[in-house]
Simulated assay, not measured.
Amino acid sequence: MPNDRLTFYTNPMSRGRIVRWMLEELGVPYQTVLLDYGTTMKAPEYLAINPMGKVPAIQHGQTVVTETAAICAYLADAFSQVGLAPAPDDRLRGPYFRWLFFAAGPLEAAASNKAMGFVVPPEREKMMGYGTYAAVMDVLEDAVEQGEYLLGDNFSAADVYVGAHLGFGMQFGTIERRPGFEHYWSRVSARPAAIRAKQIDDDLLPKDATKT
């Protein structure tokens, strides 16, 4: 139905790759709108969608969602028939949200600070939401080693979001290449939807873009 149209705003060199993977896992029809940094991303038309002037964002009918983790959580619930989120009364709902937002909070902050060369002074660790980079890595490594996926045998949107962060982070050196991380990433990145999403975005890269 027209009122349920799903529009995806992105750039292939952005966190939009995570949402692309999520959309491919869902297997639902969607329209892609490509935006460029500094031009269409900052144009009034898009600022009406996301005042931050950043991607990704989605519009589902009249509903606009920004922030990658929120988009993944929203889509999993909006298309609950696909089974990428535990039901509200499922005991796995808590762990699902825990790891989805652990990656959006402590992991994102710790990895970003590492990329910028910022080390939290020991006397200031209690002021940081993630404490220390080492603590974040240890907790996450333990989580991905507990089972096939973060929720045991059940693949979910949390695996899309956490897996993408691990893949990107290890590629660019902001996340350590620990065996647990590499084994987990090798499993989730081999999913057909992940491969398909990567190919779609790779094909949209500028011809002179550096691929690593």
Rank of each mutant, 00 (worst) to 15 (best):
Q59R: 15
Q31W: 00
S186R: 14
V28K: 09
Y133A: 02
M22E: 03
Q146P: 00
T68N: 14
T212M: 12
I200C: 02
D138C: 00
P106S: 15
A164E: 11
Q31N: 10
F118P: 00
T132E: 08
S186V: 02
L92H: 13
P121Q: 01
K211S: 07
A164S: 15
P206Y: 01
V139E: 13
C72M: 09
A111V: 05
A69I: 03
E24V: 04
E67H: 04
V162K: 03
S112M: 13
D202S: 07
D4G: 11
A194S: 14
M127A: 13
R93A: 12
W185N: 07
E25Y: 06
D77M: 07
P95L: 10
P88C: 11
V19A: 00
L84V: 09
L92K: 12
L47N: 07
A43C: 03
I18G: 01
Y161K: 06
A135M: 12
A69R: 01
G163P: 06
A111D: 01
G152T: 10
F97V: 04
V160K: 01
V162H: 01
T66F: 02
A87C: 07
Y149R: 09
W185P: 00
G61P: 05
I18P: 01
G38K: 13
Y149A: 04
P179C: 09
V144A: 03
A73C: 12
A109E: 12
T10M: 10
A194W: 09
A103N: 04
Q146N: 06
A104M: 09
A73R: 11
Q31A: 12
R178F: 00
R20W: 05
R20H: 12
V162R: 02
K211R: 15
Q62R: 11
Q171K: 12
M116A: 14
V136T: 13
A197Y: 06
R20V: 02
G169Y: 09
L92Q: 15
K198I: 00
L75C: 09
L23S: 06
A111R: 12
R178D: 01
L107W: 00
N11C: 11
P192L: 10
A134D: 15
L151H: 04
P2N: 08
Y9W: 07
K54Q: 15
K198L: 09
W185D: 03
P2C: 03
A143R: 05
G105Q: 07
G173Y: 07
L150P: 10
A164F: 14
A135C: 04
A209G: 04
A48Q: 13
N3M: 08
A115W: 08
C72N: 12
S156A: 14
Y46R: 05
D36W: 01
M22F: 04
L205I: 00
Y74G: 04
Y133L: 03
D153Q: 14
N50A: 04
F155Y: 15
T212F: 14
D138E: 15
R178C: 04
